[in-house]
Amino acid sequence: MDIALIGRIIPVFVQAAWTTVQISLLSLVLGLAVAALIASLRLSHLAVLRFFGAAYVSVFRGTPALLQIFLLYFGGPQLGIQLEPFAAGAIALGLNIAAYMAESIRGGVLSVDRGQMEAARSLGFGEGQSMRWIVLPQAAKLMIRPLGVNAVALVKGTALVATISVVELTYTAQRFIGSTYKPFEIFAVTAVLYMIMVYGLTLVIDWLDRAYAEEA
């Protein structure tokens, strides 16, 4: 172990990890917003909307995230969409994770007993009101774990934007492995930073889950 090297590279790697955090947060917000939309399409009364929701999920889950990133970043200009690597990466990752998160949201809504909706309706709540005030608060609790699993996968998935030269953690690791000839020191530093992000996120999810459970 070359401790001096580790000390020297830490500032650069922390900087790179910060980029990973930023891209994760951006894709997470975009992913949740799109997922909510897709889940409501999938739960719609209209067959055509349900079809579009199901098609979105099927296409984005049926093809590699790497190709989705490449299609947007390299293929986008052919359609007049010109994006910086960072933006292309965040958008593609967000659209990708949205397909998985939509299923987590839908699963949560469907696990709430049907009687809850029926009771609310019979008490005079409208369809949307029942969803907003009766079903969703109960479903939210059931969604935390699955959405958390999606979010953890997203953080690790951000490594893929290294392939379109976004200078995040994995990209930086590859560059330093090539220039220092110290693969294990580099891997150790990189792994520790990923662990802090991944297991830190896991702690946040546990806390959210417990906070919600106590409230109920």
């Binding site: 690790k156 998935g157 951000t158 490594a159 893929l160 290294a162 392939t163 953690l169 994995t170 690791a173 590859q174 492995i177 090539g178 000839y181 110290k182 693969p183 294990f184 580099i186 891997f187 990189t190 792994a191 990923y194 662990m195 991944v198 297991y199």
Partner: peptide
């Protein structure tokens, strides 16, 4: 624990570009 917490791409870089250096 190490392999669960890190991305596949990083692991591939370690195996392919890293191991050859030692």
């Amino acid at each position: 624990w190490l392999f669960m917490g890190t991305p596949l791409l990083l692991q591939l870089f370690l195996i392919y570009f890293g191991l050859v250096q030692i």
